[in-house]
Every structure is written in structure tokens, then in C-alpha cells.
């Protein structure tokens, strides 16, 4: 057993969360091109553009939990998911996995620990190599990482496919021979084949038809109990998140605005953005109703509003909201919200 594995076991025994993000930020910078640099030198008001995709986010995911990460386009939820999954390095901050700082590890140690986090993507058409047979898509990684021997390979792939609800008889086929829902199952089988204990799902059911979406959601829930998995479930669909999650995190323009147990968020949303988001969601239980309206559009993350990012659209905005960035504070047990209104009360 390697040193990290020992350290990890010790940390887990001490009750360390599965994943802990501390002050994670990610910036994307657009460097000036040659003409831009000359223009700048000549005094033109051009400067490098920076998008704060994720801005100082703290997030804790405990073992066995399903955390739903919700937000609209451009809020940084996918970027955050990619950093958690270890495929995108953060610009700032610390990521602790089982209590160990992932970013301080050597490449070999990081690979070992990153293997235990797998990701399932939105587009089952783009995330599978069209030139590989299903058996290779599912079986390549466990073979490379030594989780299975050549001798046990076939049986192993069969088992992985069966678990994801695919008939192993189709393992010689290519991805294009499958429907969207089946491809998503291939993606799931591939992710689970390396025996992860933590799965990041980035809009994993968004591209599917309703009846197929239900099948995949049921599969996620079954696998959770069977394999004792922990999920970070990223979605813009509040209905799906409500259905699946234990805890919900809501992001707006790179920042977490609210975080609470799922029941609490949907019953007593605290942040005005959460409230308007919930009011905008069409629900099948409602009939012929007036759709409520949040005014305005999502601002560009290139040039976000000052203070609280939501203030130009917020019905309760005050002077303070334009100047001061609200911090995430506990407003009820387990519920944290970043809004100045909570101070006034």
C-alpha cells in the first residue's frame, strides 16, 4: 500500500469529507494579440479580458451524498465540475480529496487518486470515441490501470455493461449503432469500470427524451445504492436536481449564492435568485398559470455587475448590494445564503 493510500485511510477514518474545495477560483484570460498590444502601447483603452468563471467557491461533499449543482448558462457550474473531477486545474484554491491536498501530489499519486473520481458528460455523441468498439471504450481504462488482467477482461467488460443496462452481446459494436440513451449507458459503464467512489455528472440527462431520461435517472439511483457512490450532479433542470439530490448548491455568475438540503431549498429558498429561479420553473402539477417573470438577462461574465452579481435583476436590491459583495452565511441549520437582506432582518 502506498503512502497516499495510508494517509487517505487515516483521513477517512477521521471523518474527512470525500471532496472539499477551499476558495477555488478559475479565471480564463484572453491574451491580447499583436495588434492589440501595439494599440495598448499607443494608449488605446484595450486590455486583456478575464472571465471569472468560478470565483472563490467553498464546497464540501460528504461520503454517500448526492449534491446537486444548479445554475443557468455561464454560471460556472461545468467549470467547477471539471475542477472537481481533476481535468481542469484551478487558478486559486485547494482541493482536498479524502482529506489530501490533490494539487500538492506528485503526478503518479494524483493519477491514483483522480482515478477514483469519474465524470459523465452531457453529450453522449461527443464523449465517446466513434472509432472504438464498446468493449474497448469500457475496458481500456481498467486494463491500463491494472484493475483487470487480460484473462479476466471479457468477463469484466460484460459485467460492466450488464450493470449499466446494456446487453453484452453488443460489445463488438461501435457507438453510432446505439441510440442516445444507450450511449449514455456506455458512458456510465465506462466511468464505473475503473471502480470510482465519486461521480461528477455534467448535465448527464439533458440531451435525452423524457422517457429515456427517467430510465437513466433510475439507473443513477440504483447504482448509488449498489456501489455506494457519491455524486456531484450538475444540471440546469431543477426538477431533476430536486428528484435526485440530498443537498443543492445554487450558482450565479461564478459564485455560490445558496446552499442547503434539497427539501429546504425547495420549501424555503432564501436568496432572491433562488426564489426567482424556482418561480420560473414550469411544473407539471401547475395548470394554466401566469408565468412569473424575473426581469432582465443574465449579465456577461466578462463584465459582471459590482457588489452582489444579482442586484440589477433583484426585486429587493438596495444601495449596499451595488457596493458590497455579500458573503455566504448560515441563515438556518444547514442552509447558507449570500444575501445582504439576511443582515437587515
Amino acid at each position: 500500500m502506498s503512502e497516499t493510500a495510508t494517509a487517505r485511510r487515516a483521513a477517512l477514518d477521521a471523518g474527512a469529507p470525500m471532496v472539499e474545495l477551499r476558495g477555488i477560483s478559475r479565471r480564463f484570460e484572453k491574451k491580447l494579440d499583436f495588434a492589440g498590444r501595439i494599440a495598448q502601447r499607443l494608449g488605446a483603452p484595450v486590455r486583456e479580458e478575464t472571465v471569472h468563471a468560478v470565483d472563490n467557491v467553498d464546497l464540501t461533499i460528504r461520503k454517500g451524498e448526492v449534491v446537486g449543482l444548479v445554475g443557468e448558462s455561464g454560471c460556472g457550474k461545468s467549470t467547477l465540475g471539471r475542477m472537481v473531477a481533476g481535468i481542469l486545474p484551478p487558478s486559486d484554491g485547494t482541493i482536498l480529496r479524502d482529506g489530501i491536498d490533490v494539487l500538492s501530489l506528485s503526478a503518479a499519486e494524483a493519477r491514483e487518486i483522480n482515478l477514483r473520481t469519474q465524470m459523465i458528460f452531457q453529450d453522449p455523441y461527443a464523449s465517446l470515441n466513434p472509432r472504438m468498439r464498446v468493449a474497448d471504450i469500457v475496458g481500456e481504462a481498467p486494463l491500463v490501470h491494472g484493475l483487470v488482467t487480460r484473462a479476466g477482461y471479457d468477463a469484466y467488460v460484460d459485467e460492466q455493461m450488464r450493470r449499466a443496462g446494456l446487453d453484452p452481446a453488443f460489445k463488438r459494436r461501435y457507438p453510432h449503432q446505439f441510440s442516445g440513451g444507450q450511449r449514455q449507458r456506455i458512458g456510465i459503464a465506462r466511468a464505473l469500470a475503473v471502480k470510482p467512489d465519486f461521480i461528477v455528472c455534467d448535465e448527464a440527462v439533458a440531451a435525452l427524451d423524457v422517457s429515456i431520461q427517467a430510465q437513466i435517472l433510475n439507473l443513477f439511483m440504483r447504482l448509488r445504492t449498489e456501489l455506494d457512490l457519491t455524486y456531484l450532479f450538475i444540471s440546469h433542470d431543477l426538477g431533476v436536481v430536486e428528484h435526485l439530490s440530498d443537498r443543492v448548491v445554487i450558482m450565479y455568475l461564478g459564485r455560490v449564492v445558496e446552499e442547503a438540503p434539497a427539501e429546504t431549498v425547495f420549501a424555503r429558498p432564501n436568496h432572491p435568485y433562488t426564489q426567482s429561479l424556482l418561480a420560473s420553473v414550469p411544473r407539471i402539477e401547475s395548470r394554466k398559470r401566469a408565468f412569473s417573470v424575473v426581469k432582465g438577462e443574465i449579465p456577461s461574465p466578462l463584465n459582471p455587475p459590482s457588489g452582489c452579481h444579482f442586484h440589477p435583476r433583484c426585486p429587493h436590491a438596495m444601495e449596499r448590494c451595488k457596493l458590497e459583495k455579500p458573503v455566504l452565511k448560515e441563515v438556518a441549520p444547514g442552509q447558507r445564503s449570500a444575501c445582504h437582506l439576511n443582515d437587515a432582518a
Binding site: 443557468e72 429561479l277 420560473s280 414550469p282 401566469a290 408565468f291 412569473s292 424575473v294 438577462e297 443574465i298
Partner: peptide, 13 residues
């Protein structure tokens, strides 16, 4: 996005 969808549905209604 949902908030924008809500706005458009309200207008259409």
C-alpha cells in the same frame, strides 16, 4: 435558460 423561458412564456401568454 429557465428565467428567460419564464419571461418568454409570460409574453406569449
Amino acid at each position: 435558460d429557465v428565467t428567460i423561458q419564464g419571461q418568454i412564456l409570460a409574453e406569449v401568454q
